[in-house]
């Protein structure tokens, strides 16, 4: 199963390494980890997505809670939270197939960020599934490089 954790932490040095170290040491999986500032300057927010059995996901929550620098841990249910991810992807394209690529972008709301004679860079955001779908749609053009931000997530209520 997937575990999505929204974690508020003290915004000072070494906290990220404490959290990633905890996952490494106990053999917990990190699918993605995103850190950023919050509305409070001294608080950072992390969204951590992990996969494991129920016991592992429970253990992750408990171990996160043990860290004195962790202020709050929220386990987000996929259907009761909003999750978003962003991707930049550069795919090969020539004048001959450019228009079909533009068509995919317009159907799937990909934003064209840069075009060169042999490639096109596109920005996509949305649910992780949507981004994966987009990758599948453009795979045949040849992916030159790509980068995903990882998921950020907030509970609905």
């Amino acid at each position: 199963m997937k575990g999505i954790f929204s974690v508020l932490v003290e915004n000072h040095d070494g906290v990220l390494s404490q959290i990633s170290g905890l996952f490494a040491r106990r053999g917990f999986n990190i699918d993605s980890l995103v850190v950023g500032e919050t509305e409070q300057r001294d608080v950072s927010s992390m969204t951590i997505v992990s996969t494991g059995d129920q016991r592992t996901i429970d253990q992750i929550e408990k171990h996160l809670n043990k860290k004195p620098d962790v202020i709050k841990v929220r386990r987000l249910e996929e259907n009761r939270s909003v999750s978003m991810e962003m991707m930049l992807i550069k795919v090969g394209c020539t004048p001959a197939n450019r228009s079909t690529l533009i068509e995919i972008c317009s159907i799937m709301e990909g934003r064209i960020m840069h075009v060169s004679p042999r490639s096109m860079m596109i920005e996509v955001h949305g649910t992780p599934e949507r981004i994966s779908d987009f990758i599948e749609m453009v795979r045949s053009y040849g992916i030159i490089e790509m980068q995903r931000t990882g998921v950020i997530s907030l509970g609905r209520s």
Partner: peptide
């Protein structure tokens, strides 16, 4: 006293 001990090894 440590809730993380519960369920760490035993089911």
């Amino acid at each position: 006293i440590d809730s993380a001990e519960i369920g760490k090894v035993l089911g």
